[in-house]
Design a protein around this nucleic acid. Structure first.
Lengths: 257, 257
DNA sequence: TAGTGGTCTAGACCACGTT
DNA sequence: ACGTGGTCTAGACCACTAG
């Protein structure tokens, strides 16, 4: 079985009654996140067993367990009874398109029905907002991808995607056209960037003329505007995505509690 | 301290290795949900302590704890260290409007800035979809509420709300106009109906003429259509709400992971 | 059969809020 | 000082997967 198992000894602070007290399992969680961030634990592979981690960190299995529990509910790690605990990856069919919430009443916009056409991939000077979010230095750039996504052979989504150039060197139109992977899978494989969480802002807007033409609707037709900021480990923003969704046959589904 | 503390002894099945095995803590969770559904545990009040429940159900505190953990992450119960565990209520400011996801970049659409004007409250024959969702008998009705909600003194949301009449007898326009409570607080106080979860379907649509006038926009202006089904304990649908949001100054925010 | 995560226990002690 | 939830431990056993 392929797995992550480099042995590193770390020290855990067991002090109590300090000023700002952090429970042990939170410290373990942070250590695990560091291992993910540093690349010690690689996407798709198994991390050391709970017993092993308990021994490494000198805590009980229950404490490791609670740390993994949280990372598991955050979809950062995936537990598989009888097999082990694995680093979540965008390659698996179940999590592909997990951030695309377009559905019909009968099916989800999944891999089989989704097909994307990249229109352009250019290097640009970032806006002030982009520079701050990506923590870019004055002379650094962003890469902008424009594309149209077809669902059930209907043009349904137009997107403008921005990523920080320093983390995505050699991201080109050729690569995007060669690798017919979902974008987040490609980010993972080629750039080692794992997007694990995102915030979205939704509005209803009038279709601008150029987008209207691409989606086969008249100018001014209502589209769902989805502005997304996607984050990797450590709450670092790694992608800004402005999408316009045609919601005639699909809707954006959401569950609240 | 006011609390829920009627003593009821229940028997817990501790069998293992059965056909479809359900862990003890899941059984405890179901028992707690039954107590909530039956009204034994009342909204806003404290439930028995973990120790008490452990004794009642003849299991360890850890097992009760895990059951409460799940109900707590589902926002059904709320833990307060040093005080106790409480039944979530829509009366508290923190959870008021917790299902209304309209924000600006600076603030959330909270109580202080929200004001709703009820236009009508009528009894209607349900549609086939409504009849099925609410499990209504042929001769039973739904109540339909139409209202406009103002945010920051601007008409922003138009809603048509449907609830099953048998569970909401004597819900009248007078009551809605008298009690200036958020709707879900009113449902809780007057009808003992706790809405704890909902599913939403979002689309961008053209404003119909009548709604356009109410929201001070021209006919056909893009609005965010939000179709919600809200559920109480036991996944029973208790409300259908079709909203049209003007997203000029506010947006619908969402977090995915 | 061995190894993994999943459940359950009993007990100790800590942090927090109230009395 | 007391009662609540919160953390941590050590150990036992169960359920699932794979060789």
């Amino acid at each position: 079985m392929v797995k992550n198992d480099k042995v590193v000894t770390r020290r855990v602070i067991k002090e109590k009654s300090s000023a700002s007290f952090s429970p042990l399992y939170k410290q373990i969680k942070d250590l695990l996140l560091q291992s993910l961030e540093s690349g010690e634990f690689k996407a798709g592979l198994m991390i050391p067993s709970e017993q092993e981690l308990a021994a490494r960190f000198q805590v009980s299995q229950g404490t490791v367990r609670k740390a993994i529990d949280e990372l598991s509910t955050e979809n950062v790690l995936i537990r598989r009874q009888g097999k082990g605990t694995f680093v979540a990856t965008h390659h698996e069919p179940q999590v592909r398109y997990r951030f695309l919430r377009l559905s019909t009443d009968t099916y989800h916009a999944d891999e089989k029905r989704a097909q994307s056409i990249v229109l352009s991939c250019t290097q640009q000077t970032p806006t002030e907002e982009q520079r701050q979010l990506f923590e870019l230095k004055p002379e650094q750039f962003v890469i902008c991808i424009k594309r149209v996504m077809h669902l059930s052979n209907q043009p349904t989504v137009y997107e403008e995607i921005y990523v920080p150039e320093p983390s995505f060197q050699h991201l080109t139109l050729e690569l995007l056209n060669t690798e017919k992977l979902p974008l987040y899978s490609l980010f993972e494989s080629y750039f080692g960037v794992q997007l694990i969480r995102c915030d979205e802002k939704l509005r209803a807007v009038k279709a601008p003329l150029d987008v209207a033409r691409m989606l086969n609707v008249e100018e001014g037709y209502p589209l769902l505007s989805v502005n997304r900021i996607a984050y990797t480990y450590g709450d670092k923003a790694m992608e800004i995505r402005n999408g316009l969704y045609l919601t005639e046959h699909y809707y954006y589904r959401n569950s609240l509690n």
